[in-house]
Write a protein that binds this DNA or RNA. Structure first.
Length: 923
RNA sequence: GCGGGCGUGGCGGAAUUGGUAGACGCAAGGGACUUAAAAUCCCUCGGCCUAUGGCUGUGCGGGUUCGAGUCCCGCCGCCCGCACCA
């Protein structure tokens, strides 16, 4: 039986409380006494020894050692990074945390990985920048303010203090001197300067747009905060409102943001693909259809966008978005249409609504002429499935080859004419009923397009329509459309960066002059009413117009918090500067060489940052457009879930697990009642399957927690947090400690020169050492932490198997092996490594030491073992000189007893020798 | 619906990218030490068989190859992202 950490702490003595030397003395004594042949003495010594072991004092005292080394590093300022350093630079960054109150295991995993990279690169001779900060603006602080009557600022800074302490006990090699929070006035002041620059450069603009409006909380909600059409907090039905909002013109950069993805070759393919889909490029044609009679809004043509102009002959109707200007114009004099449009808006565009909503339309009575099919007219509908913000907000419907159009046509009894015939299809009998055909084929029923492929038909119809003039311009134009829309950054909230703009009746929108920045958030606010406290503050928004001096009002919206996180990595390069950046310094450090974070930011944060860096380049703040050269997305931390008989979630700390003969059962600690063990899920507060990092570090130490997070699971995949796994890591920590402790006695002094020769078995240990070093180096380069961990286990096993040295060269090789082990484990378990390093007699700090050198000669064996196959099945092994010729290998293989037996006197048909790999005998 | 990924022991996962499948860890079983427990150390651990050997085995079915977990074709299953995008 084992107990989960919380319970364990209550029931057992902490292993770290006892001093090592005391135990060592006892062990020496009992060792001597044990040799005496007397049952009484043996019994007594056993008692003494047990007591000593029970004191657990043999163990490495992580708690004491970790605090000590953290202090040492701190004092020596070994992680403080200078901007003027001759060594090559390396910028490693983990996505900065939101200060919610406590760190969670996801943070531990993220920062453990980043720290390994930082420490490894440092040892490899790079000048490493590894900073930390806080993504500190946002709604939770306001919610806390409302619920607990605490100022958002106070709540946030308290959380930051608590979380900083938690991070510090992890022993991360961070340059804390560069720390800042995005809610620091000094930071958002610079962000406001950037905003003003962007405004002048035309990168920001203001327009009316539809937003989700919560009428109870009186605020805009993000799409994610609208649940089943209601506000997530208030529960009130969300309204669609037209509000004037600030936008970044990210969509103008869509082509570049898309193309540049190809150059991000150190990004996960998956993330690049997600961004590609999000940007959503499609090539097509805008086509203008002539109305039979002029439309109510005075227009003579209706412009649509299509990617399938090849199906034009299959058109049977036109459809407008309910938000199309023409829809509104017709609705003015048409109450039925007004009602229909209202209904469409009510249903909204939530996921649930889209899945269940029927395709519906309203026939406006208008008709357009078919552009190429002489004499055909098409009815114009307003349809609920047409989006205003894509293409032109109007489409032509081709029911045979588009499922939505088919559903619509079936409902309103519109004609369905197939114009693409599948290969091997029969034109006479090909009918479309309930399922549209969207595949490849030959064009039919399409006059001059008949018989063409889809691609040829697209080109032909485009050329034809481009040559037709309507009202002085071509009827059709080729166009590239993007799904990416401009980034609306206005938030009707207090806890965000104020948008530095003043509204003046005479002068319009005037940016706050840079010398008057920052526009600071007022402190005297209250949350007793819903809505934006900035808006109802008695004095804050009233000011003089910077242009004319007359009375004016401040913008009371604040910026989306994604703006804050779109350039923090740049600010780290010069965190105290009185300008947003020092361009030279920023250009020195950027792009970030290795960025590490969760996949959940694959689109928003990473796309916004890419845009923002471009904007900063345009306004002269940085010299590049891509901020992150290498990106790594780590997996989540998961844990078993537990529920009691009532279905209540139970947290792991409140129960104990019993295990035996393959049966695992969980019981509540308080009542003893059995609890059912459920599926493995992402650690979350709602399922209570979280484990507190501080508990783990208290019990096992930071090195154990870090090491476990990096073991077993590949870093990009989810890792399952298990108590057994942590204990495995803890055992390894202790094992290394014992190994070093035992070995020190049989080691030569520090600067003993390397022996001239080594005996064969000593050489074997040296080979293992250098092979491990080589492999771990490669694994760390590729962030394959789990593989590196396995290699370290192997080396420890090998050193253990080698046993105590019996010769000088053996002793020397032992020191080499152990020093190497300590050095390669240092990035993962820095405290233990320093402790061992010191124990080995080293005076330097391992944190500032160089990575050991691989002796390439030792990677090559003189004698190798080749597997020998017969017909692809391994039958024997052949030990042979590495540089043996193919002929020699073949001859030796055929002489092997096992091979001779199998061949049974017959000559092999063929022998394949792959040098230094394998031998395959074809019988 | 569209796009992408993944299927290897009881479990997490290795496998030099076509060359000894199961490294390393976890769990389990056995043993040593101990009055006992804990800790530690040693052994076993894909399956089957007539067991110092042999057969079989990487989701299923085929193919290419001297040789396939890896490549190709066709299925099955799971996971993720996007989604009324014309």
């Amino acid at each position: 039986m084992w107990l989960l950490p919380h319970a364990q702490k209550q029931l057992t003595i902490q292993p770290f409380h006892f001093e090592f030397p005391r135990y060592k003395a006892i062990r020496r004594l009992t060792g001597a006494l044990n040799s005496v042949d007397s049952p009484t003495i043996r019994f007594t010594t056993n008692k003494i020894r047990q007591t000593a072991i029970n004191m657990a004092s043999e163990r490495y005292n992580a708690r004491e050692a970790e605090a000590r080394w953290q202090k040492t590093w701190d004092k020596a300022e070994v992680f403080k990074t200078s901007n003027s350093d001759q060594r090559p630079k390396y910028y490693v960054l983990e996505m900065f945390p939101y200060p919610s109150g406590r760190i969670h295991m996801g943070h531990v995993r993220n920062y453990a990985m980043g720290d390994v990279v930082a420490r490894y690169r440092r040892a490899r001779g790079f000048n490493v920048l590894h900073p930390m900060g806080w993504d500190a603006f946002g709604m939770p602080a306001e919610n806390a303010a409302i619920q607990n009557n605490v100022h958002p600022s106070e709540w946030t800074y308290q959380n930051i203090a608590a979380m900083r302490d938690q991070l510090k006990i992890m022993g991360l090699s961070l340059d804390w001197s560069r720390e800042f929070a995005t809610c620091d006035v000094a930071y958002y002041k610079q962000q406001q300067k950037l905003f003003v620059d962007f405004l002048e450069a035309g990168l920001v603009y203001r327009k009316k747009s539809k937003v989700n409006w919560d009428p109870v909380d009186m605020t805009v909600l993000a799409n994610e905060q609208v649940i089943d059409g209601c506000g997530w907090r208030s529960g009130a039905p969300v309204e669609q409102r037209e509000l004037t909002q600030w936008f970044f013109n990210i969509s103008e950069h869509a082509p570049d943001l898309l193309e540049a993805l190809d150059g991000l070759d150190r990004w996960p393919e998956k993330v690049r693909l997600m961004q590609k889909n999000w940007i959503g490029r499609s090539e097509g044609l805008t086509v203008r259809f002539e109305f039979e009679t002029t439309a109510p809004d005075g227009s003579d043509t209706l412009e649509i966008f299509t990617t399938r102009p090849d199906t034009l002959f299959g058109a049977s109707f036109m459809a407008l978005s309910p938000d199309h200007p023409l829809s509104a114009a017709i609705a003015k004099t048409n109450p039925d249409l007004t009602a229909f449009i209202e209904e469409c808006r009510r249903i909204g565009t939530s996921v649930a609504a889209i899945e269940t909503a029927e395709k519906k339309g309203y026939d406006t009575g208008l008709k357009v002429k078919h552009p190429v099919n002489e004499g055909q007219t098409l009815p114009v509908y307003v349809a609920n499935f047409v989006l205003m913000d894509y293409g032109t907000g109007a489409i032509f419907g081709c029911p045979a080859h588009d499922q939505r159009d088919l559903d619509f046509a079936n409902k309103y009894a519109l004609p369905v004419t197939p114009v693409v015939l599948p290969e091997n299809g029969d034109a006479a009998s090909f009918k479309i009923d309930q399922e549209a055909y969207t595949g490849e084929g030959r064009i039919i029923n399409s006059d001059f397009l008949d018989g063409m492929s889809i691609a040829d038909a697209k080109e032909t119809i485009a050329v034809r329509l481009e040559s037709v003039q309507i009202g002085g311009s071509p009827q059709a134009e080729r166009q590239i459309n993007y799904k990416l829309r401009d980034w609306g950054i206005s938030r009707q909230r207090y806890w965000g960066c104020p948008i530095p703009v003043i509204h003046c009746e005479a002068c319009g929108t005037v940016p706050v002059p840079k010398q008057e920045l920052p526009v600071e958030l007022p402190n005297d606010i209250n949350f007793d009413k819903p809505g934006n406290p900035l808006d109802r503050h008695p004095t804050w928004k009233h000011c003089a117009c910077p242009a004319c001096g007359k009375e004016a009002t401040r913008e009371t919206d604040t910026m989306d918090t994604f703006v804050d996180s779109s350039w923090y990595f740049t600010r780290f390069t010069a965190p105290d500067l009185e300008d947003p950046t020092d361009k030279n310094v920023a250009d020195h450090w950027l792009p970030v060489d290795q960025y590490i974070g969760g996949i959940e930011h694959a689109i928003l944060h990473l796309l916004y940052s890419r845009f923002f860096t471009r904007a900063m380049q345009i306004t002269g703040h940085v010299g590049m457009k891509e901020p992150f050269k290498g990106l790594f997305t780590q997996g989540m931390v998961t844990h078993e879930t537990y529920r009691d008989a009532d279905g209540q979630w139970i947290t792991p700390a409140d129960l104990r697990i019993e295990e035996g003969s393959g049966i695992r059962q969980a019981f509540r600690l308080d009542t003893g009642a059995e609890v059912s063990i459920g599926s493995i899920e992402k650690m979350s507060k709602s399922k209570k399957n979280t484990v507190d990092p501080t508990d783990i570090i208290d019990t096992y130490g930071a090195d154990t927690a870090r090491f476990f997070m990096l073991s077993d699971s590949p870093p990009e995949r989810d890792v399952i947090w298990t108590e057994e796994g942590v204990q495995g890591a803890f055992r390894f920590v202790q094992r290394v400690w014992r190994l070093v402790d035992d070995a020190v006695e049989s080691m030569p002094p520090l600067d003993t020169p390397q022996p001239e020769t080594f005996s064969e078995n000593v050489l074997a240990l040296r080979r293992t050492t250098h092979k491990t070093l080589d492999a771990v180096s490669n694994d760390l380069e590729k962030l394959a932490f789990n593989r590196a961990v396995a290699r370290m286990y192997e080396l420890v096993n090998s050193i253990g198997k080698a046993g105590k040295p019996t010769s000088d060269d053996g002793a020397w090789a032992l020191r080499e092996a152990i020093e190497t082990l300590v050095q390669i484990m240092a990035p993962m378990m820095p405290h233990l490594a320093e402790e061992c390093w010191q124990k080995l007699g080293q005076n330097s700090l391992l944190a500032t030491s160089d990575w050991p050198q691989v002796e390439k000669d030792l990677l090559i064996e003189n004698t190798i073992i080749l597997p020998v196959q017969v017909n692809g099945k391994k039958r024997a092994e052949l030990s042979i000189a590495r540089d043996a010729t193919k002929e020699q290998v073949e001859a030796a293989a055929l002489e092997l007893e096992a091979i001779v037996r199998i061949l049974d006197g017959n000559a092999p048909r063929k022998v394949i020798v792959v040098p230094q790999r394998i031998v395959n005998v074809v019988a």
